[in-house]
C-alpha cells in the first residue's frame, strides 16, 4: 500500500506530476474541441432545417458519415490523410518536405467533426421546440435577425439543448483517450508510460479510470449549474 501511494505521489519517483500534466492535456484538448464541434454542429443543424434540398442533403451525408465511423478511424484518417494531403499540396507548389501534423490539431479536427455530427441532432431537436410565434413576435418588435436569435431564440435553445449537449461533452471527454494512439501525452498515454516504467498496470490503469471519473463528475456539477442558470427565467407548468 505504501509503495502504491509513493508511486502516485508528486515527489521524486512518483508519477503524480506526470499524471496531472496528462490530465491538463486531456482537459485542454476537450475544451478546445468543444466550441469547434458545437458551432459546426449548430451550422449543420441549421443546414438540416433549411429549405434548400442541397443543404439538407449535405447535412445528412455529414451526420451519417461521422456518426457511423469509429472515432479511432476518423482520427487516423484525419492524422494520416491530413499529412498526405498537405504533402501533396506542398509538392504541387514546389516544396519537398516531410510534414508531421500536430497530434493536438488532428485531435481537435477529428473529435470536432464527430462532436458536430452528434450535437447537430441535439441542436435540431432543440430548435424544433421553439415555437414559430417567438420568431414572429421578435420581428414584430423590430428586432433584426441576429438580435432576435441572440436575445430570443438562443436563451430558449440552450435550455432545451443543455441536457443533450452534456451527454455529448461526456462522450467527447472519454473519446479524447484515443488521442494517446497518435502519441499525444494525455492521461492515457501518460499512464501507458508509467506502466512501462513501473510494471504496475493494475495501479495505473485504475488510477486513469478514476481520473476520468473525477473529470466526468466535475462536468456533472458544471452542467447542473449551467442548467439551473439556463432555467432561471422558466416557470414550471
Amino acid at each position: 500500500m505504501q509503495d502504491i501511494l509513493s508511486l502516485l505521489s508528486f515527489s521524486d519517483g512518483g508519477w503524480g506530476t506526470a499524471l496531472a500534466a496528462g490530465t491538463l492535456v486531456t482537459l485542454s484538448l476537450a475544451l478546445t474541441t468543444l466550441p469547434v464541434g458545437l458551432f459546426l454542429g449548430l451550422g449543420v443543424a441549421l443546414m438540416a432545417r433549411s429549405n434548400s434540398p442541397r443543404l439538407r442533403a449535405i447535412a445528412t451525408v455529414f451526420t451519417t458519415i461521422f456518426r457511423g465511423l469509429p472515432e479511432l478511424l476518423t482520427l487516423l484518417i484525419v492524422y494520416y490523410g491530413g499529412q498526405i494531403l498537405i504533402q501533396r499540396l506542398m509538392a504541387a507548389m514546389g516544396f519537398e518536405a516531410q510534414i508531421q501534423i500536430n497530434a493536438f490539431l488532428a485531435g481537435v479536427i477529428a473529435f470536432g467533426l464527430v462532436l458536430a455530427a452528434f450535437s447537430s441532432e441535439v441542436w435540431v431537436g432543440a430548435l424544433n421546440t421553439i415555437a414559430r410565434g417567438q420568431y414572429e413576435a421578435a420581428s414584430a418588435l423590430g428586432l433584426t435577425k441576429w438580435l432576435s436569435f441572440r436575445l430570443v431564440v438562443f436563451p430558449q435553445l440552450m435550455r432545451a439543448a443543455l441536457p443533450g449537449l452534456s451527454n455529448n461533452w461526456l462522450t467527447l471527454l472519454k473519446d479524447t483517450s484515443l488521442i494517446s494512439t497518435i502519441s499525444l501525452v494525455d492521461i492515457m498515454r501518460q499512464t501507458n508510460l508509467a506502466v512501462g516504467a513501473t510494471k504496475q498496470p493494475m495501479v495505473f490503469y485504475l488510477t486513469a479510470c478514476f481520473l476520468y471519473l473525477i473529470l466526468s463528475a466535475g462536468s456533472g456539477f458544471a452542467f447542473a449549474f449551467l442548467e439551473r442558470r439556463a432555467n432561471r427565467g422558466h416557470v414550471r407548468g
Partner: peptide
Amino acid sequence: IYFFRGSPLLAQLFLLYYGLGSL
C-alpha cells in the same frame, strides 16, 4: 454503471488486458 459509463472503454480494456493479465 457509474464506473463503466464514466471512464473510457480504452482504459477499461487496458485495465483488463494488461492489469488483470499481470496477475
